[in-house]
Design a protein around this nucleic acid. Structure first.
Lengths: 305, 305
DNA sequence: ACGGTCTAATCAACAATATCGATAAAAGAG
DNA sequence: CTCTTTTATCGATATTGTTGATTAGACCGT
């Protein structure tokens, strides 16, 4: 036999009112319902919680201790139930994204979203496109942001922007417009093998360039930027990851002619996903901000030329 | 519509097992019972808490937040229920006692009791006999300890010892055996009017002494003892309240001939009181210790003569 | 001391709902 | 494609909660 919430509710009301009959009225139940409920509770606990003194029910030593424990818990439970019934903006969203997006786009999206919906917790996982889409597939994240292509038919994909890969240097001598093959023998710093950014770039130039001089390989975009500084090197990375440095004049975009290396940013989620108001809002928010950030990126690029 | 404990229990099990069918087996319910319970819960909350991804039920963003809130609460509730079902020694006893008993007997009783039953909380209220018996009558305390007589027929009285009033002084010159009337004109320090101790004493000597020289009146026994020190005064108070000072030789008992002023210590409780194991143990404990303390007090008195 | 008026406890009848067993639908495994 | 596994659905049934009437005890004013 187990205690029920209803019994606790009745018990707490009886304790605070003192009289069974009043509780019956205020709860719109019969007096006998209350009486039996209390009795049932005492059976479950194994001994009375009230002393029947005169007409009143007075908590006895056991009941008092019980009340002290139950009361705050019940209140909290009620609060939680109320919250979830009434507040749309309560939840915990798990987001996955690939490195570039995690580093340069998610922070401001999450930050901005959470200032509008403070009750929502967001967790962020990093992974490559394949890993992220697998997480979606098995339901271990709610939504993912990746570059490139996703194949699974269980996954819904929405294009949320275009990622532009640009050729970057810190050396002013290299900035002058030229064709890509003219730069092939300069010192190139690229991401490691297996990186999406690297593959896209090499794939894009493979018809025009026979042999690229890969001077150094690094696992993180930030490390590449450090290496670039004050050296005669080149790299090709996401425009958004060097936005700040371009504005500040620390790095320069090389005006490569006939060079337009792009890939889509995709937002992905499982087709069976239930779209709570919460979730919908997050999707909407993310899309809006993504477009904004990528647009402004392109504008800046335009001005810089 | 309200959430039930059972629903939460099922929900939590489904979350931890991941599979509906396993939960059905482990809870010895049909699979459909689980399924419907979950669905009912989602109805109550107003939106799904699981995403039905492939065969699995995976918590969605709402469910995750809900689980995080519910899980610790449910565990705590289970603990409380278990505690109260299994532990006899859980409760909160409200004790009332008159001044003398509160000051000189209850501390060691409570202290000793609580070292045997650490889960029991005891609250102590002070009041005169009338106040204490009224509290018993209306159920606002569980048990009382008083001196003197209690009239109500709703109250069960048990004699737990004899309180002896003795004549005390700090002045060695006054210690010599004599009759009470010979001391009447000495300086007497008594409790204030209305005090039980004072009334008993005055009532006891009223046939033998016409006019007692009441030099000073004080509300507390401890104040009386302070006044006595190094002065040629007398008082008549409970033997137990000056036990220590007699042993240490700071105060002396006057060997008044033909003087035997006594009153009973009573333990009282309501006739309708439910006697939990807890309560019974406390009664037993109190009686035992009362007798012990009052006996030892009398032995000391005997030796001192 | 006597009904009248409270109170809580009890009981059988009824209503609500939780659970069951069977079946359907969907998806992964072989 | 078939077999197995898993969840959803449905009507029937068992359990549980609730009701209304009744009983019993205590208080109140006359």
């Amino acid at each position: 036999m187990k205690l029920t919430l209803r019994q606790m509710e009745i018990f707490l009301n009886v304790v605070s009112e003192g009289h069974l009959t009043n509780v019956a009225k205020s709860m719109k139940l019969s007096q006998s319902a209350i009486s039996m409920s209390i009795k049932e509770m005492e059976n479950i606990i194994g001994r009375p919680v009230f002393d029947r003194i005169n007409k009143k029910l007075v908590l006895n030593e056991v009941g008092r201790a019980f009340h002290k424990e139950i009361d705050p818990l019940y209140k909290k439970l009620s609060d939680i139930e109320y919250e979830f019934k009434n507040s749309e903006n309560k939840g915990m969203i798990r987001v996955g994204a690939s490195t570039t997006i995690v580093d340069y786009l998610m922070p401001s999206i999450i930050c901005s979203y959470m200032s509008s919906y403070p009750d929502v917790k967001i967790t962020l996982k990093e992974g490559n496109t394949k890993e992220i889409s697998q997480m979606i597939d098995e339901g271990s994240i709610d939504v993912g942001f990746v570059e490139g292509f996703v194949s699974s038919s269980n996954i819904i994909k929405e294009k949320v922007g275009v990622d532009e890969l640009v050729v970057i240097t810190a050396d002013k001598k290299l900035v002058a417009p030229c064709y890509i093959d003219a730069l092939a023998q300069k010192k190139w710093v690229l991401r490691e093998e297996g990186s999406g950014t690297r593959e896209i770039f090499l794939d894009y130039i493979k018809e025009k360039v026979e042999d690229l001089n890969i001077f150094f390989e690094l696992g993180h975009t930030e490390s590449i930027k450090s290496i670039l500084m004050n050296r005669e090197c080149l790299t090709c990375i996401s425009k958004i990851s060097v936005d700040t440095e371009l504005k500040e004049g620390k790095l320069y975009q090389v005006g490569v002619k006939n060079f337009s290396c792009r890939r889509d940013f995709l937002m992905i989620y499982h087709k069976d996903k239930y779209h709570s108001a919460l979730f919908e809002k997050f999707l909407f928010f993310s899309k809006k901000l993504m477009f904004q950030m990528l647009d402004s990126g392109q504008k800046v690029q335009f001005k810089a030329r």
